[in-house]
Design a protein around this nucleic acid. Structure first.
Length: 272
DNA sequence: CGGGGCTCCTGTGCGC
DNA sequence: TGCGCACAGGAGCCCC
């Protein structure tokens, strides 16, 4: 499941591979992945267009597109659970393929078809983006701001961290890891955390995301980078997916519970 | 605001 | 061995 570090890795890869290349053909094998406009309309607008820049907001990729008619559009791609964007040879199995002017392809794969692709004039107007919370690695997102936001919330900390309108980009893996690194029980009510814990959590979220980006993300499941390679942060995980195995700090077996419908991994001894 | 439950989808892994 | 089914989960949505 691509979260902020994985999406950022893909963004950096694709920026090198596809920017300023013309899209000379588009093969749509599954119409469902395109949410707006119609697949036919999207195809006609993207044909002979050029991607001039790739941005990221939370887990969303935003491709700035200069169309053949000189109009500017934005192609937004949310990879959700199993989406992949892989540059290289033609892949007849992918849901969608863009043929580029250098002869290479950008293939969009999505096993479970949860991913969403949109072509819009104004990405800021998308509801999901309009209500998205602060970008954790932004310089102007401070510990003080984080504290202010978290103090207002009565929810359990783990589900709160997954709420994209509270903070952008965290998913099930990094939420679990950030809480372990901070010694916080996932069921702990957010507004009951001490100032010290809040500050620690803030610091750990940022450090964790930076380190995961350096390792090109976590390939626990289907995640692959822009070249189809796995991320290397998987080996640095402390709790995610480790239920029954011993805690790497205190040897207590890692526990798995369900919170807000999501599998949640933690150490009952290290996280209070 | 919190949270439970349902939906989308398909590969995996289990029990029998 | 092979079938059938529960399960996994990001985010929207409905409802209490």
């Amino acid at each position: 499941m691509p979260e902020l570090p994985e999406v950022e890795t893909i963004r950096r890869d694709l920026e090198k591979f596809i920017v300023n290349k013309k899209i000379i053909d588009i093969l749509i094998r599954n119409q469902k992945v395109i949410k707006e406009p119609s697949p036919q309309k999207l195809k006609s607008l993207l044909l002979n267009s050029v991607c001039t820049k790739i941005q990221r907001r939370g887990k969303l990729l935003i491709f700035q597109i200069k169309a053949e008619n000189n109009q500017e559009y934005f192609l937004t791609i949310h990879l959700k659970m199993t989406g992949q964007l892989i540059f290289g040879e033609y892949d007849s199995q992918s849901r969608l393929s863009f043929k580029l002017s250098d002869g290479n392809f950008l293939n969009y794969n999505d096993q479970r078809l949860f991913g969403e692709l949109r072509l819009v004039k104004d990405w800021r107007a998308l509801k999901f983006l309009a209500q998205m919370g602060p970008e954790p690695l932004d310089q102007d997102f401070t510990a003080a701001e984080f504290k202010k936001r978290i103090k207002k919330r009565h929810a359990k900390t783990k589900p709160l961290l997954l709420d994209q309108s509270f903070i952008a980009g965290l998913g099930n893996i990094y939420a679990a890891e950030a809480l372990f690194l901070s010694g916080i029980n996932p069921t702990r009510r957010a507004d009951t955390l001490s100032n010290g814990k809040i500050r620690l959590l803030f610091k750990n979220i940022r450090r964790l995301l930076r380190k995961a980006i350096e390792s090109r993300g976590t390939s626990f499941d289907t995640y692959r980078d822009g070249r189809g390679e796995k991320g290397k942060y998987t080996r640095s995980l402390f709790v995610y997916g480790r239920q029954g195995q011993s805690c790497l700090v205190c040897k207590t077996p890692i526990k798995r519970v369900v919170l807000g419908g999501r599998g949640t991994y933690y150490c009952v001894r290290c996280q209070k």
